[in-house]
Simulated scan of single mutants.
Amino acid sequence: MIENRPFLKVLSHVILIFGVLLVAFPIWVAFVAATHDAGRMNILPLPMWPGGHFLENLDVALNQGVWGGDGQGVAFMLFNSMIMALVIAFGKIVISLLSAFAIVYFRFPFRMFFFWMIFVTLMLPVEVRILPTFEVVANLGMLNSYWGLTVPLIASATATFMFRQVFLTIPDELLEASRIDGAGPLRFFKDILIPMSQTNIAALFVILFIYGWNQYLWPLLITTDQDMYTIVIQIKRMLEAGEEAPQWHIVMMTTLLAMLPPVVVVVFMQKLFVKGLTETEK
């Protein structure tokens, strides 16, 4: 029997509310700054309530740009970030699914050796191997391209390990039943494994989309053409205004635009995300 203690219930709610306010306050400050003009943002104290320039600042950020942006808006940079995040997320999931499928359901020499070699790459993130990776990408002529932004980042040892663990929980009777029905390996993979892994795929998609969207170091290294800049790089460039003061109202508007796609993905896939991380039985 669970004891009903009103004091602990109230205390837990107070702590949760305080945590939400603590996390949301910077977002509120960014939103308020995005609704004021440049003159108000240069006057102390900073405003804590919205102004009337939201749509104007939105148009400037999307279509006109500011110092450090060479007069170009961030609309195409949002598109570049979207392409990068989606290709990385789908690429990691597809490669990891196929890798885990081969490791679990096929018997070939050094099978576990190759699995542990994949797992060992967790100790070699992009930051560690960035120079040789850059040289390979440059020699292949993939600088300033979507291929260069995404291909070096689509392999994932973590996702491979996760799908391997998921496949190991699937009963062998399903494999035997599919063989009796005349299904080949690809049919078993497509009709049995993928449907049973949908929640895990959804959870990984959310994580990997945010991972790809927030990439900074790799795009900064291989993109010199402004048409290939991502939104995260542009925010950094907007803060480096040279002799001019940053236009904080446009910077904060751009920050809100950069936060929007990951938030939308998390909100719309929240149930599948939580289910994919907590589901233990098939």
Rank of each mutant, 00 (worst) to 15 (best):
N80Y: 03
W213L: 07
A245L: 13
M253L: 07
V251L: 09
L44S: 11
L46P: 01
W147G: 13
V166H: 08
K275D: 11
D227M: 11
V66F: 04
V29M: 14
V136N: 06
F119N: 12
A138N: 13
K275Y: 03
N42Y: 11
T150S: 09
M253H: 02
P132R: 13
T121Q: 08
S12M: 14
L124Q: 04
D225G: 02
A202Q: 13
I130C: 02
L131C: 04
Q198L: 15
E281W: 03
Q215G: 00
M142I: 00
L21N: 05
K190A: 15
W49I: 15
K190T: 13
K275F: 00
L86R: 03
T158S: 13
L174R: 09
R164E: 06
F101E: 01
A102C: 14
W116D: 03
I103R: 09
M123Q: 08
A61G: 05
F115Q: 06
L21E: 11
Q234F: 05
M252F: 12
A177S: 14
P45M: 11
R107G: 00
F25N: 07
P262M: 13
G71T: 03
F161R: 05
W218D: 03
L58N: 06
L208T: 08
I93F: 11
M82F: 15
T223Y: 06
N63V: 02
L55H: 04
L55N: 04
L277N: 02
G184L: 09
P132I: 12
L124N: 06
A102Y: 07
L16R: 02
W218I: 03
I95T: 12
L256K: 03
Y216I: 06
L260I: 09
R164S: 10
F90C: 11
A258M: 12
M112F: 09
A258P: 08
V60S: 11
L174C: 07
F134W: 11
W213Q: 07
T278E: 00
W147N: 07
W67C: 00
V74W: 00
L98F: 15
L16H: 01
V263G: 12
S96R: 07
F101Q: 04
E244F: 14
F76V: 13
G184Q: 06
T223V: 10
E127W: 04
V66A: 08
M253F: 06
T280R: 14
L8D: 13
M77P: 00
Y216K: 11
R111P: 03
G52F: 11
F205T: 08
Y105D: 07
A33E: 05
E176G: 01
R40H: 01
L86V: 15
G212Y: 07
L260E: 02
L149G: 01
Q215S: 05
N63Y: 10
E176W: 09
V264R: 00
Q165V: 02
T158I: 15
V29N: 08
T199R: 08
I154S: 07
N57T: 01
M259R: 00
A102K: 06
T35E: 02
P152S: 02
P246V: 01
G51H: 05
T224M: 05
I170Y: 10
